[in-house]
Design a protein around this nucleic acid. Structure first.
Lengths: 227, 227
DNA sequence: AGTTGTGAACTTATTCACAGCC
DNA sequence: GGCTGTGAATAAGTTCACAACT
């Protein structure tokens, strides 16, 4: 799938065009790369020059061979007997993920969730920035939030000139497809979707969906019957 | 793995105790059950009495045989030549997920994200309700938001008497483990975690993690090099 | 001794193909 | 004719085990 599900959200229809890649890299390995980055950041704060797959495993609870294999898909970054250079590996991973240079995102929908996303402090460490905001509420349009001016959602095409490559959809399900169409028309090729709706987009566009309610909804399944 | 990752967020250490189940049901099938419910709701609104795996496939973009196999892990709910009874299948799935009766959740952390989650309208259709809120900010404690009184996070143990079985963590990474410990001590056995941190919890506790920044961070990887 | 990188073995998940039922 | 349920085949992902390197 195309990750229209929830985080791992895996894939039935593969939006990503794999034909272009030489080696076959598992989606799951890509999914874990940002985690490795998080682990490396923690090690860096601890002042560690080098880090082993075992050390990362402790922090992230991913098995050491898994970590080594994932990294090996992209190259040989470590030194036998020593481990990985903390800073160098982080740099390599950022390069692979293409977050070594800043990535700008447009947020569509400034409701409760959209506002929270706009203020979310976690994007910075991945070189991500929300640099445009759209809504359809006349009361919100024109206002400035976090140094970003709220624009009318009908003017999504204005994105083209701004070097914005990512879109975040935080609108109700009923509006999500129209917003996705607008984003695609504006040249966006990557969408993070919070609406509980399957987005029909061209194959070249990658969609990752997060459905908060769905994730909470499968928790009861795992609860012991007694509780 | 234990889903401490991001939505699919999949799992490294398997928190779920599989030994107790007779048949082996793929985690992935469970992950898709709420999607089927969403599709069935749409069909129900369309007034369809019956629905085929093909029809659901159109709505959700999950292949028909996948849908049939997933459902078959739990029983034979369909009628050959006809399909599934929309209402009955929805009821079955709610039973499997144990959301046929209401599930109460405690939200910890009333920052931007926590506030958005509290107001999130999507939980109702899965019979989920946030019926307790905790924070450590004296300014917030004592206030009432959405009919729920904000309590001091140090009083998590009060949960025990309230019939609350789920926890939602929306605090900074640095506080997440302490909150998780508190929730576990209060008897919670299912946690939805928004903090970018691996939560160390007993095996009997199921953790599903959502890391928004991480999900956005792997989008650039899939962008065409030119863009 | 300690650690990486990786082919091979294994496990898990998806898709196919079709018998059987309505 | 249309659709389910499912064993068998395929594909994807994980873990193991160990040679090679520092």
């Amino acid at each position: 799938m195309n990750e229209n599900a929830s985080t791992k959200q895996k894939a039935e229809v593969d939006v990503e065009d794999r034909r272009m890649r030489y080696r076959r890299i598992p989606d799951e390995a890509v999914r874990r790369l940002p985690m490795y980055l998080r682990g490396l950041l923690l090690c860096s704060e601890e002042g560690l020059q080098n880090v082993s797959s075992h050390k990362l495993s402790e922090l992230l609870h991913i098995n050491p061979p898994q970590i080594r294999k994932d990294l090996s898909y992209f190259g040989a970054f470590g030194t036998p007997g020593v481990g990985y250079d903390t800073a160098k590996l982080a740099k390599q991973i950022r390069g692979i993920l293409k977050i070594d240079t800043p990535n700008k995102a447009a947020l569509v929908g400034l409701g409760n969730l959209g506002s929270a996303i706009l203020k979310y402090p976690g994007f910075g460490s991945y070189n991500l920035e929300i640099s445009a905001v759209f809504d359809n509420d006349p009361v919100k349009i024109g206002k400035t939030v976090r140094d970003v001016k709220v624009e009318d959602v009908s003017k999504l095409s204005a994105l083209k000139k701004k070097g914005i490559t990512l879109g975040i959809i935080a609108v109700p399900a009923s509006a999500a497809q129209a917003v996705a169409d607008g984003l695609v028309k504006a040249g966006i090729r990557g969408i993070l979707n919070f609406a509980p709706y399957y987005l029909d987009v061209p194959r070249k566009v990658k969609v990752i969906s997060i459905d908060i309610a769905m994730d909470l909804a499968r928790l009861p399944y795992y609860l012991p019957a007694s509780a």
